[in-house]
């Protein structure tokens, strides 16, 4: 067990590699109760959120969600989150555990008349079931129900069970939110339906293989979503929002650095966050923000902010692992495409 965002969380239940492989080939269940849940509602909630977040809230249909960013005035990332629209003017946001207080403070300082923001993180337990067999697990947990549409959200049991077709592994699957007291029961139900319990270790290797960023590592208040290569979730044309000017200028002038996917050329030691990334002349180009041994590929993978020229796929680089040079190459994202 390790401390994580104010919670005690397991790195693994059995073995990171076994858990990882279970998600890639069958199904796994993660306890994600540490994630924060915010409810935003009231007249003008959608328009206000459109000024607070990067993605296009007005274009989000009721019953669906999207990935989006909360930026600071410099266009840096405070948090990355999934925003679900549960009604015309009612939203459910799932935010990072370590950022709940900061997100809430930031948003409350800017809240507008008629909009209500509740931190409901204490009320909910949350689980993610991920893997090619997730639909079968869902059916077994619900007496035969079908999963919501991709990125869809559904309420069951009078709002006591909220299911979303989202995840952090690249696999098909769903996440659900329930009253905190029911969490353990639902976790057992998922296990009984065949999902293998998975810890933070597998969550990290799975998300890195598909290049999903981890806030605090790959995302930071000093880096914009454009530098992170996540411009798809930034609607620059939608009108004013916090950080927009900085991002528009970055787009106009071109980015100095980009978050690049780096893959080792041969088998070797795992590469880890903090390892320097060197260019052809031994000059330091950047530092890995994430790194691991990819259980699916059997090879070291990582991400680093590199100067634009070096961030191009095909660029050879060297990763310095305790003074030992490890040959690597910038590659296209993601490292691994789920079947």
């Amino acid at each position: 067990m390790v401390p994580f965002g104010g919670w005690e969380m397991p790195i693994r239940y059995r073995s990171i590699i076994e858990e990882h492989e279970a998600v890639r080939s069958r199904a796994g269940v993660f306890d994600i109760s540490h994630m924060g849940e915010l409810r935003i509602r009231g007249a003008g909630a959608a328009a206000w959120l459109d000024r607070m977040l990067t993605n296009h809230v007005a274009g989000l249909e009721v019953g669906t969600g999207h990935y989006t960013f909360l930026l600071n005035d410099d266009g840096g990332v405070i948090d990355d989150l999934i925003l679900y629209r549960v009604g015309d003017e009612e939203f459910f946001a799932v935010v990072n555990a370590a950022k709940v207080a900061e997100d809430v403070d930031w948003l409350r300082e800017r809240i507008e008349e008629g909009v209500e923001l509740d931190d409901r993180s204490e009320e909910f337990a949350a689980m993610a079931v991920q893997g090619p067999e997730a639909a079968a697990v869902y059916a077994a947990m619900t007496d035969g129900a079908s999963l919501p549409e991709r990125n869809g959200i559904e309420e069951h049991d009078g709002g006591r069970w909220l299911v979303c077709r989202t995840g952090y592994t690249g696999e098909d699957g769903f996440e659900f939110f329930c009253p905190a007291a029911d969490g353990a029961d639902w976790f057992r139900k998922a296990m009984a339906a065949g999902a293998v319990p998975c810890g933070l270790g597998a969550r990290d290797t799975l998300r890195l293989e598909v290049c999903y960023p981890l806030n605090g590592s790959d995302l930071s208040p000093d880096r914009s979503p454009l530098e992170a290569g996540l411009g798809f979730f930034v609607a620059l044309e939608k009108g004013e929002f916090t950080g927009r000017e900085v991002l528009a200028a970055q787009k106009e002038e071109g980015l100095a650095e980009r978050l690049a996917a780096i893959r080792c050329v041969a088998k070797g030691p795992p590469v880890r966050a903090g390892a320097p990334v060197l260019g052809a002349d031994g000059e330091q180009l950047g530092v890995l923000t994430s790194g691991t041994l990819s259980p699916s590929l059997g090879i070291g993978i990582g991400m680093a902010y590199l100067p634009r020229r070096a961030a191009k796929p095909g660029t050879p680089v060297t990763i310095d692992v305790r003074g030992r040079p490890i040959a690597a190459e910038v590659v296209k994202k993601p490292f691994y495409k789920p079947r």
């Binding site: 790195i11 693994r12 990171i16 590699i17 270790g201 290797t205 030691p269 795992p270 880890r272 691991t292 041994l293 259980p295 305790r322």
Partner: peptide
């Protein structure tokens, strides 16, 4: 010597 797992060295 160094022995490394996925998570740590």
């Amino acid at each position: 010597a160094v022995v490394e797992s996925v998570k740590a060295a």
